[in-house]
Design a protein around this nucleic acid. Sequence first.
DNA 1: TGAAGTATATTCACTGGTGAGTATACTTTG
DNA 2: CAAAGTATACTCACCAGTGAATATACTTCA
Lengths: 201, 201
Amino acid sequence: MRSTSSNARDRILTAANKLFYAEGIRAVSLDTIAAKAGITKKTVYYHFKSKDDLIEAYLVSRDQPNLELFRSWFEAAEGGLPDKVQAIFQNIAASARHPKWKGCGFLRTAAELANMPGHPAMKVGAAHKKKFEAWMAEEFQAAGRELAPYPAHDLARHVMLLLDGAFSTILVHRDAAYAEAAGEAARVLVAGALGGASQRA
Amino acid sequence: MRSTSSNARDRILTAANKLFYAEGIRAVSLDTIAAKAGITKKTVYYHFKSKDDLIEAYLVSRDQPNLELFRSWFEAAEGGLPDKVQAIFQNIAASARHPKWKGCGFLRTAAELANMPGHPAMKVGAAHKKKFEAWMAEEFQAAGRELAPYPAHDLARHVMLLLDGAFSTILVHRDAAYAEAAGEAARVLVAGALGGASQRA
DNA sequence: TGAAGTATATTCACTGGTGAGTATACTTTG
DNA sequence: CAAAGTATACTCACCAGTGAATATACTTCA
């Protein structure tokens, strides 16, 4: 049994999650993370081979939970496809009103690591965003062929662009209303693709 | 004559521009900037009261030039409103293919300073984005009342969201094609707002 | 006019503190 | 016991910001 070990590893990852997300990757030292996890820095280096490694692990740990969250918002929403897509944005708006909200960890990490394109964490971020896009495309595909002249994967990409635009813009303005605006735009695109007259909310 | 003075200040600002943009705000030290500017760190502190102050000056110096660039792309484009809007995105795609391109300096700075909401540089960034949005709204307003059920300022905000989405997404994937996708989405929205059938490229 | 004084601009050398990462030794537990 | 896990205590590099001194140019007024 390596229960103690995993405990330490988990505590490190939990601390890293909170601190990296709250303060940013470069603003947080391993000393601070170790302190928050209640262990020594050397123990951090026992479980992770470098800070970059821990950054990568941080993003890996967020991948599935974030996607699940989007999925649950989408599924819980009443109404048609436009409504379900819009619901994602409305939920983001709600999240963004919490004072601890600091944007999308993947996007912020990508911004901080823009000078290290090959960084392993970048790959995790890119994969995460691709998964979101692919999932959206699936949903659109499943929802019917009515969107013929507007391929599902194009529409999915456009929605994803609006989503990341919302994340970035809210962060700049500190105003969750931008997520609602993005939701309306997404709604217009999806409704339009479905061939129906684009009924706006 | 204070020519020497302005020279030093300008050199500092030029060096800060290049380094902050290329490496990120927190990754660059004032020692590095001073070295690049060919002066002493103390001289940096003579002209700027702190690193934060220099960060702010960096963004201030980018505000007008960036807006001018967008404007020039828009004006140079042939065709109607949808084409002119789309042209902005196409030009961003072209810029993004240069190896030195590292996204939008305002967005990346906002991501790095997410833990300091009141930071002066954040205000500069927010003001910059607002100017872009306001300019777009003006253009839409001027272009006619035909977009009745889709208020010009809503449409402007949607275009801005797509733009920032493009900036972020290109950075994550290192693929300028996302700007083209965003441009198509913007084209669909603008064309749709004009009441015409949304003819896609 | 020119000497004395003052503001501007710059340098060298430093401080206190923090950063990532490590050498070594202790401790737990199967 | 031996291996996994953790701690103490350290290195060396860097960083934001400063103290004290100096050089240059502009201003004042005897």
